[in-house]
Simulated scan of single mutants.
Amino acid sequence: MTITLITGANKGIGYETAKQLVERGHTVYVGARDTVRGEKAAADLGARFVRLDVTDDASVREALATVGAAEGRLDVLVHNAGILAAGDIDGPGALRAFDTNAVGIVRVTEAALPLLRESSNPTVVTVSSSMGSFWAVTNPERPESGLPLALYAASKAAATMLTVQYAKAHPGIKFNAVEPGATATDMTAAFGIGRPAEQSARVVVRLATLGPDAPTGTLQDENGLLRW
């Protein structure tokens, strides 16, 4: 049985990723800040709920301790929690964006490493974004070049860099970042764009189910490696 933890999994891409992995036989832990929503999502999915706020060190430690006590290991970690940070560009907004989209990855990864080392095929997937790709945002042929989302883009660039650096630091664990595609979620509602979360989740699931000899330290989308 594959043990999987997904952050921000009570809705959107995280929820659909959990659903598809449960269907593949994974024991999935739905990580969510809101206990009521998280427990409902887990019950609907046939998964398990663990309260997890990626911006709170104690919450992260307690969540991973819960998984560890129940399972003794973690096979797959999906960093899905994130915010768009599309409001005013100021210090508090920047701190919130980076705390959720980048520092949260550090908190959860560091807490999860001891459990990941107990797995025979440890895998970490970061739901990043092509908005964090220098290549994409400076390419006039790409839609990213026309989207003014400074804090989101910068924090997702940090998320991808963290993925690469963790891959270098821990060669026994696969770390890959993914651009799931423009998706219709609560985050993108103001833009009125995106495909169903179910489709984008398939891209995440592909990276979450890689074999032991798969690449590590990459940013990928549904077409393969993505320049950044």
Rank of each mutant, 00 (worst) to 15 (best):
V28M: 08
T27I: 12
V108P: 04
G8C: 03
P92N: 12
L115M: 12
G132P: 08
A32Y: 05
G146W: 11
K168P: 00
S120G: 13
R73D: 04
H79T: 11
P180D: 02
E62Y: 05
I173N: 00
A102P: 00
P180T: 05
A158N: 04
H170C: 02
D57Y: 09
E23C: 08
M131I: 07
V125H: 04
F98H: 11
T185G: 01
E222M: 10
L74P: 08
G211Q: 03
L149V: 13
G68C: 14
M187G: 01
E110Q: 15
R227I: 12
V103L: 15
R24Y: 05
G46Y: 10
I83G: 08
A32S: 14
L210W: 04
Q20D: 13
T66S: 14
Y29S: 01
V50W: 10
Y15H: 10
K168E: 14
G38C: 10
R96M: 14
L226E: 10
E71I: 11
E110D: 15
P143S: 03
G93E: 08
A190D: 01
F191L: 15
R142I: 09
A102E: 06
D34W: 13
F49D: 04
T27F: 07
R107E: 10
P143W: 09
T183E: 00
K156S: 01
A41L: 07
E62C: 04
A69D: 14
P140M: 09
A85Q: 08
T123V: 06
G172H: 07
R37T: 11
S59A: 11
R33M: 05
M187V: 03
S145P: 03
D213A: 15
L77A: 06
L226V: 12
L210M: 13
L219H: 14
M161N: 12
V106H: 15
A197F: 04
F134T: 14
S133N: 08
L225H: 13
V50N: 07
E39A: 13
N139A: 01
A32W: 08
S120W: 06
P122T: 10
L207H: 03
L115C: 11
L64G: 11
G87C: 03
T138D: 03
A158T: 05
L77K: 09
K11H: 01
D75E: 03
N121W: 06
R117Q: 15
L149Q: 03
L84E: 07
V164E: 04
S120H: 06
R142V: 09
L162Y: 12
A43K: 15
L77D: 05
R48V: 11
L219F: 15
G93P: 07
V108G: 00
D213L: 13
T183P: 01
E110R: 15
H170P: 01
E144R: 07
Y29F: 13
A97T: 01
G224D: 04
N121L: 04
M161P: 00
G31T: 06
I13K: 00
D56I: 02
G91K: 11
L225Q: 13
L45S: 02
R202E: 14
D57K: 11
N139K: 06
V60W: 06
R202A: 15
K19D: 10
L52W: 07
Y152V: 00
Y15L: 12
T109Q: 13
N10L: 03
A9F: 01
D90K: 05
S120C: 00
A65V: 08
E71C: 11
E141C: 07
R227M: 13
A86C: 02
V178T: 06
L74M: 12
V78Y: 08
G192S: 10
A32P: 03
E16I: 01
E118I: 13
